[in-house]
């Protein structure tokens, strides 16, 4: 997303470390054990490619509630307010009509328990990606201001094993997931990528979709299938830098002016897009093309 681009260009100074916690739960049978562990391992690999990332992955026997409780207590002492903190849950979830539980060795982990641990983290940008079955039931307990919650299922009644995790993990490896080409994959972009791929899977297979991913990032209200300006969802998720694909750069004073000019044009483009519905299409396209050419020229100068 655009704002992330600006942040990267202006260097990482104002933002801290990126923390990632992946928890792969019980599979129940061998097929799922292998599948969940495989996705978690792939995710772990992708995350470890991120410079300076704090990656913590718990698979199988290591993912007990006690281990996790201790780990989160430790994170609470280390994480800074400027840091970003992301948690990924991969496995089976259950919902008994009251509580959501993530199936891990030993006692299961409830959404409220996880929320309690995360509430103690000083990081102001938080993300939970719950890819488990019935994960929709965890949203109410997890949602909070400045925390994006993504769930593979829209409710606790979608109880079948999900595929969303597979595509979410794929998003971190596929450059095309960075749809705005700003060299940063946001949580929102990864959500869209995984959701689209999941929907296509069920459509192509002519199978009734048993999972419908949703996102909530305002701390209030229902999670939505399609975050947008209209429903007020997606802004925080769009600002959550899940993964930087390019290197942050530092500029000379001359180039910094160009960076500022570029940001200004980007701002004008954004403003124009918001006005799109209210102006004739030809006028919009003409203005947009003009701004885009100007932006391209500025970028060209910047890259010299």
């Amino acid at each position: 997303m655009k704002w992330i681009s600006m942040l990267l260009l202006m260097a990482n100074a104002s933002f801290g470390a990126s923390w990632y916690v992946t928890i792969s739960g019980l599979g129940g049978d061998l097929e799922y054990e292998v599948r969940f562990a495989g996705w978690a391992t792939d995710l772990d690999k992708s995350l470890r490619n991120i410079p300076d990332a704090q990656v913590n992955t718990y698979i199988g026997k290591t993912a007990t509630k006690e281990t996790l409780r201790k780990a989160f207590a430790e994170f609470a002492g280390k994480v800074k307010p400027d840091d970003s903190f992301a948690v990924f849950l991969i496995g089976h979830g259950t919902f008994d009509g009251t509580d959501y539980k993530f199936n891990i060795p030993g006692p299961d982990l409830s959404a409220a328990e996880l929320a309690g641990w995360m509430d103690k983290l000083p990081a102001t940008r938080q993300l939970v990606v719950n890819t488990t079955s019935a994960g929709g039931a965890s949203i109410a307990a997890l949602q909070r201001v400045n925390r994006t919650v993504i769930s593979a299922t829209r409710s606790g009644t979608e109880k079948n094993a999900t595929l969303f995790a597979r595509y979410f993990v794929e998003a971190l490896r596929d450059p095309s997931a960075d749809t705005d080409k700003n060299e940063t994959l946001s949580a929102l972009e990864a959500f869209h990528y995984a959701d689209q791929k999941t929907v296509k899977f069920y459509e192509t297979q002519k199978r009734l979709a048993t999972e419908h991913a949703v996102l909530e990032d305002t701390g209030k209200g229902e999670a939505v299938r399609a975050p947008s300006a209209e429903n007020g969802k997606g802004l925080t998720a769009g600002r959550f830098p899940l993964m930087a694909l390019g290197n942050a750069r530092k500029f000379s004073p001359e180039k910094t002016k160009l960076v500022e000019k570029k940001q200004d044009i980007e701002g004008q483009i954004d403003k124009l897009k918001y006005e799109k519905a209210a102006m004739p299409s030809d006028e919009y396209r003409k203005k947009l093309a003009g701004l885009l050419v100007e932006l391209a020229r500025t970028q060209e100068e910047l890259d010299k």
């Binding site: 655009k2 681009s5 749809t179 705005d180 080409k181 700003n182 980007e266 483009i269 897009k273 396209r285 947009l288 093309a289 885009l292 050419v293 932006l295 391209a296 020229r297 970028q299 060209e300 890259d303």
Partner: peptide
């Protein structure tokens, strides 16, 4: 050119598209 404008509308910082847009412009 129209396709490039649409590409950049989605991703204003997409460098290959920027380059071709300038070339055509």
């Amino acid at each position: 050119r129209e396709s490039l404008v649409s590409a950049l509308e989605n991703a204003p910082g997409f460098k290959p598209a920027q380059k071709m847009l300038l070339e055509l412009t």
